[in-house]
Design a protein around this nucleic acid. Structure first.
Lengths: 229, 229
DNA sequence: ACGAATATTGATCATTTGGTCAAACCAAAA
DNA sequence: TTTTGGTTTGACCAAATGATCAATATTCGT
């Protein structure tokens, strides 16, 4: 009555509108992941969404707008995966949990991971703000806490920013370059739970060992040790 | 006289032809790296090569042919970086050398690295043969040698195939996602020698430590150790 | 059931894009 | 110099592509 709640087409959140937008974003994510922004066509996206091409433009004005919407969803996904780290958390389990969360993302949302990778490869023209803002802050904060851990002797000294980058690299590679791994491992045409499990454990072991958080398993024969030097 | 050495336009290797083909491939590498196969336009490539568009089609029939030529050069580059590994080589220095070689490639040929990454993200439709053939063989051979090292107690037991993948992931990330790192580290708009040096050492330390090939530096204060458990 | 708001869609348009072609150009062998 | 075979280039074309629109259909509050 007294409240001014007139709706415009743009920000209306009706049932049909929400459903269709989500459906289109999901389809767009797949197509953008495969062909990048310039390589993706609105016709392909429409086909993937099983809708007429005109609908895509009805819900998202331009291809550019749609792409931004996809990126927004992905950034939200990324941000939500950043669990809080507190200073008195246990370094080993904190790192292990984070690696597990990242690998879950790679396994469950490979398209999102690839859209992100595509955007980065091209120089992130639409994400510079995010990278230099929120993401940088996140890294600074987390690296800062880890640096404290090191100062307090709770983990071995390493460059913590570089460590974070390498964790990202190893976890993302299983989504972005899946074909490479399936081709070389010879596991059908996509990675199964077993491969992800194995990879996750390998990354956790590697990171924790190199930070002195778990012991490195002994070499097998002690008599051969002198050959190493 | 007696020899049949007629030339066809396709396989002639005249001075001008060679120069122009190389010039076009270099330009194409840059454009394909940024926009992927479908996103790259022959007009952009021609502009980057500072030649009329028709020349591109004169030397390479179709965009597809040009792309394959670029991929061929990249594969050749990759293959040439695969140094021989022999069974009696020293594990630590062999791994370190390989990581250094890969990082050199990332630093010196970032465009090539990104074209490769683009192709993999999209499912490697034109490189399946290479991945399942030569590259797989290379991995099998190298992983086999490393498995022997493990059996002989010359390094700690790890999944060697997975280790190779993670080395690729960490070394490629510095080329493919350069913007991400520059944005977060705040180092102008591209990585300098110092960053590459630091990253290279970090990867080497991480890999060698996790394989028990160099000791993990001790944590700093021994009195705080009980907090960890 | 009615009407206003929202959603659907085929037809259509201007631009971009990969590719062609013929005429002009040039290097170098004869 | 002349000839020959490769090279250069602007003009051009058909197909693909992002985007628009008007006509039609559906939804939903009242």
């Amino acid at each position: 009555m007294g409240t001014d709640n007139k709706k415009t087409a743009a920000d209306t959140t009706g049932r049909i509108r929400l459903e269709n937008k989500e459906r289109i974003i999901k389809a767009a994510e797949k197509i953008f992941a495969k062909n990048g922004f310039r390589g993706a066509t609105t016709a392909d996206i429409a086909a993937a969404a099983e809708l007429p091409k005109a609908n895509i433009h009805y819900y998202f004005g331009t291809k550019e707008d749609l792409y931004r919407a996809v990126l927004d969803e992905i950034v939200a996904l990324w941000v939500s995966s950043f669990r809080e780290i507190k200073h008195d958390d246990d370094p080993a389990s904190t790192l292990a949990d984070y690696i597990r969360a990242k690998m879950e993302l790679s396994k469950n949302r490979p398209h999102a991971s690839r859209v992100f990778a595509n955007e980065l490869i091209r120089g992130a023209p639409r994400m510079k703000d995010y990278l230099e803002g929120a993401l940088k802050e996140w890294v600074e904060e987390k690296a800062g806490i880890m640096d404290q851990w090191i100062e307090e002797g709770r983990m071995a000294p390493v460059n913590t920013r570089t460590l974070i980058f390498h964790i990202w690299a190893m976890t993302q590679t299983w989504a972005d370059f899946e074909v490479q791994w399936t081709a070389i491992l010879g596991t059908g045409d996509h990675l199964g739970d077993a491969e992800y499990e194995e990879a996750t454990n390998a990354i956790i072991s590697m990171v924790l060992r190199s930070c002195g958080l778990i012991p490195v398993p002994p070499r097998m024969t002690e008599t051969e040790m002198k050959l190493t030097v």
